[in-house]
């Protein structure tokens, strides 16, 4: 049995847990805890170690989705989670410009851990104050060759689209390596 993994990262309350929940075939093994600091006004619980979702591909292959903890004090987990990943999704709450700087910092860290392919998911595009993916690209200084995708993390089709785009990018990287 081969196991492969994709990591879902991003700032606190970006929608990482919801993203994994929308597509995982098992109940997400979530290590959420009630929040004990000021972040509580944003959400009641947060992921302290990781979320863990699974998609069985076939008899010999399983894809795991790992969500990183969003709060900075748990960033020691990021490097461990990123080891051996196929690629990663940077989730950003498109309605919260106050998290963009942190998203950029997380992206810089993950790019240093492993130069694997990634896409940016501009989450909460169903909300009226959402910044468009094009504006997010500029705000986060994302290069033009990286996909910035509209996303609604609680919508399975939207999550599928983001994962598929990441997989297409991974595929392109493999094919470029061959040629």
């Amino acid at each position: 049995m081969q196991n492969v993994k994709i990591v879902i990262t991003g700032p606190f309350a970006a929608g990482k847990t919801e993203f994994i929940r929308s597509i995982s075939e098992i109940d997400v093994v979530s290590t959420e805890r009630r929040i004990s600091d000021n972040s509580r006004v944003v959400k009641e619980e947060t992921t302290v170690a990781m979320d863990f979702g699974r998609i069985t591909i076939d008899q010999d292959l399983v894809l795991y989705l790992f969500g990183t903890p969003g709060q900075k004090r748990f960033d020691f987990m990021w490097e461990i989670l990123s080891e051996g990943m196929l690629g990663f999704v940077l989730m950003v709450d498109s309605t919260k410009s106050e998290t963009f700087r942190e998203a950029r910092q997380i992206l810089d860290v993950f790019k240093k851990y492993a130069g694997v392919p990634f896409v940016v998911a501009a989450n909460k595009q169903d909300l009226p104050d959402a910044w468009s993916p094009e504006d997010l690209r500029i705000a986060l200084r994302i290069n033009s060759d990286v996909k910035v995708l509209p996303c609604v993390a609680r919508d399975k089709e939207s999550v599928k689209h983001v994962l598929l785009e990441l997989l297409y990018t991974i595929l392109e990287t493999l094919e470029e390596g061959v040629s």
Binding site: L164, L167, L174, V178
Partner: peptide, 13 residues
Amino acid sequence: KPPVKRNVIMRII
């Protein structure tokens, strides 16, 4: 390059 073969990614897709 991700640590897998093309065939693995195709199956996941």
